[in-house]
Amino acid sequence: MKKLFLFLAVIVALCSGIAGDISVLEGAPFPGVSKAYAFETKPVNFVVIDRTGGVSRSDMRGWIQMVKMDYHVPYYRLMDDNTKANAAVNEMFAKNVKPDKEAMKAAAEQAGCGALVVMVVHRMDSYMVTSHSPFDFDMETYVRTFAYADMFAYNSDGNKFIRRFLRETDLKPLGLEENPSDTIKWTLGNLLNKMEGKPQI
């Protein structure tokens, strides 16, 4: 009985102590978490330069999904305003059409972001091809697809950089083809995963 009384007394003392010191928790991101352990949310910019004139909102949603897969809250936040990033990227390409690590680092610093992902879409289309072989009596229809894009990524966390010049041309039977936008999407996702040391999709 005495042990139970002592246990309850300790609990009451602890609770009253926490209630009395609740002011120290004000301003912390989560109850009971000190500012020293708060996450540093780094801004991320994703810049797409469309050389085709045919990039749709649906295409952008798919590509943004890949960027967010590696750069997401609470550690990163994808920025809606690309004004500074666009200016930095345009200046970068004016100096070098195939930017290296130092050029991407400088552009990221100029844009004020922790990570910068840049993609230049050169070609993204498809057309149908009908076989004309004398041995092919069914006149089978194929789809030829083109997915051309230059991809660059830089992350100040670890000073990481990667790039790829995608030039994918494919010919598959009608119904088995891959949308060029999806080809670009999965390539971008795997590229970022490779740079960040994550498994391929």
Rank of each mutant, 00 (worst) to 15 (best):
A13R: 00
A13Y: 01
A13P: 00
L14E: 11
D21Q: 05
D21I: 04
I22E: 14
S23Q: 12
L25A: 07
E26K: 08
E26S: 09
A28I: 00
A28D: 08
P29K: 04
F30C: 00
P31C: 03
V33P: 00
S34R: 01
S34I: 01
K35L: 10
A36C: 11
A36V: 08
A36R: 12
Y37V: 07
Y37S: 11
A38N: 06
A38Y: 04
A38H: 05
E40Q: 07
E40N: 03
T41C: 05
K42A: 04
K42N: 08
N45C: 13
N45V: 08
F46G: 08
V48G: 12
I49H: 11
I49T: 09
R51Y: 13
R51K: 14
R51N: 12
T52E: 14
G53V: 09
G54N: 09
S56V: 02
S58D: 14
S58Q: 12
D59M: 04
D59N: 11
M60Y: 14
I64M: 10
M66T: 10
M66Q: 15
K68A: 05
Y71V: 12
H72R: 09
V73Q: 13
V73M: 13
V73W: 14
P74R: 06
Y75N: 08
L78C: 10
L78G: 02
M79E: 15
D81G: 04
T83E: 15
T83L: 02
A85C: 10
A85H: 14
N86S: 04
A87K: 07
A87R: 05
A88K: 10
V89S: 07
N90Q: 14
N90I: 02
E91N: 13
E91W: 05
M92C: 03
F93G: 05
A94C: 03
K95I: 05
N96A: 07
V97Y: 07
K101W: 11
E102K: 15
A103H: 06
A103M: 11
M104W: 09
K105Y: 04
K105A: 09
A106F: 01
A106Y: 00
E109V: 01
Q110Y: 03
A111I: 04
A111L: 12
G114N: 13
